[in-house]
Amino acid sequence: MSHDHPHHHDHDHDHDHPDPHAPRKDLEDTPPTYHQALADAVAELLIEKGVFTGGDLRNTIEYMQGRTPELGAKITARAWVDPAFKAKLLTNAKEAAAEIGIDTGPAPLLVMENTPDVHNVIVCTLCSCYPVFLLGKSPDWYKSREYRSRVVRDPRTVLSEFGTDIAPQREVRVHDSTADMRYMILPMRPEGTDGMDETQLAQLVTRDSLIGVIEVSAPA
């Protein structure tokens, strides 16, 4: 579920597309807000000072746009079919991900496994730390005051707002991320998926299940 690919326009569902051939006002023609101008000004000053180059900036933007929940889903599906990979993932997530060519980013990462006895969910109460290298940019609600305040105190109610009801006998663990430690959830493989291969399994895994606010469900 990537939001960052304006060129992949999906015309199957209709938003407001009045006339695709009408002349489009270029973004440059609208005066920037103060903060938009500030982003340009800071970027240009840092480039002039040689802190980084324009190429570094473009490459970083592109690289981060390529980070999507599909990466987290791929790791999850591999862990479901390969017990040795799963064991490694839970003890050394960075090395395990690297084995299948996935970069987990500069921050240390722990993968927490959901089991019939324990459900895990992540938050960052201080700011917005998130496994961005495996899931892409975090959704707005993850950074909201409401989610960050309440999920640590009353996780079961917050989870039920996402339609996830955790049985009372199942423990809920909330992992508070920091700049020095990120978490991703390894969801439980749903029942009735025995005949599915790794690629099909990966397609079941959603971003929200890797955050831990929902569980992965079997295809209907």
Binding site: V123, W141, S144, R145, E146, R148, S149, R153
Partner: peptide, 11 residues
């Protein structure tokens, strides 16, 4: 802000 009061999570 962990633990403070707040309303439902607007998704």
């Amino acid at each position: 802000m962990g633990g403070l009061d707040a309303g439902p999570v607007a998704r």
